[in-house]
Design a protein around this nucleic acid. Structure first.
Lengths: 112, 112
DNA sequence: GCAGGATACCTCGAACTAAAAGGTATTACA
DNA sequence: TGTAATACCTTTTAGTTCGAGGTATCCTGC
C-alpha cells in the first residue's frame, strides 16, 4: 500500500510563507523577495515554489485572498485564516523539534 | 536544460550520518538506532534511507568500509575519510546557514 | 514609438529525496 | 519449531522543489 508520510523535513517553504503572511498581507511576487530578505539571503525560493504553495494553502482554507488593482496591474493579496494560524503553530513546533534534534546530534560529545 | 540544484534543505540525513561516523565507526543497522537516540527521538530514518546514502557516500570516497564478522553475522563498519570530513564541514555550514535563516524569519518582529 | 527591463500572474516537466515495503540470511530464545 | 531480533540490501512509490517557459502590463530611455 505504500502509504508514505511526507519527508521529515519538508514544509519549510510553507512555514516561511505562513509566518510572513501572519505579519502582514502580501502578494506572491512580493513574498518571493521577502523570503530572501527575511532569511538574510540564506533561503531563496522561486515563483515556481511560491505560487503552487499559495494555491494549495488557499484550497485548504489556510489562506484567503483578495485581488487589488494597483497601477493597472492586478495583485493577489493573501492573508491568514484561523486555520492558517493553527497550521503555522503546528509547523513551527515541527520545525523546532527537528531543529533541536539536529542540534543535539551535532553537539553530542563536543567534537573529537 | 532543466539542470536542477538539490532542494535547499536536503542532505540532513547525510549530515547526521557523517556526524555520527565522525565520532566512531559504526555499521548501518546501528546507525538507524543511533540517529533516533542522538536526535532525542526527533528524527527517525529507516533502513531504506540509511543504506543508499551509505553506499553513495562510499562511492564518492567520503566513507570507507570494512567487514567484520561478529557472532556469525557480518557487519559492515563505516568510517570517515579526509574527504568525508570536508563534506561534513560543508554540510554543517550549510545547515547553520539555513537554520539561521529560518530563525531570523521566525523571530522577526516578535509575534503580533 | 519602441525596445528592454521590471512587475505580476501562472503552469508544466524534470529532477531529486525520502518513505515504505519487501527480500535474504543468521542467531537467540521460548 | 517458530518467532523475534539482528544485519544486509533493493525496488517501488510518493512527494517536494527546481527551473524554465508563458502571458500581460507598466515604465524608462533612446
Amino acid at each position: 500500500m505504500a502509504q508514505s508520510n511526507p519527508p521529515f523535513m519538508s514544509g519549510v517553504p510553507e512555514l516561511l510563507l505562513l509566518r510572513l503572511l501572519d505579519q502582514s498581507e502580501m502578494y506572491g511576487y512580493e513574498l518571493v523577495r521577502s523570503i530572501k530578505t527575511a532569511t538574510g539571503e540564506a533561503i531563496s525560493l522561486g515563483e515556481g515554489v511560491i505560487y503552487p504553495v499559495l494555491h494549495s494553502l488557499e484550497r485548504n482554507g489556510a489562506l484567503k485572498s483578495r485581488r487589488k488593482a494597483v497601477g493597472g496591474r492586478t495583485r493577489v493579496y493573501y492573508s491568514l485564516t484561523a486555520k492558517g494560524r493553527q497550521r503555522l503553530d503546528k509547523l513551527r513546533n515541527e520545525w523546532h523539534r527537528v531543529q533541536g534534534g539536529v542540534a543535539s546530534a551535532l553537539a553530542a560529545g563536543g567534537h573529537a
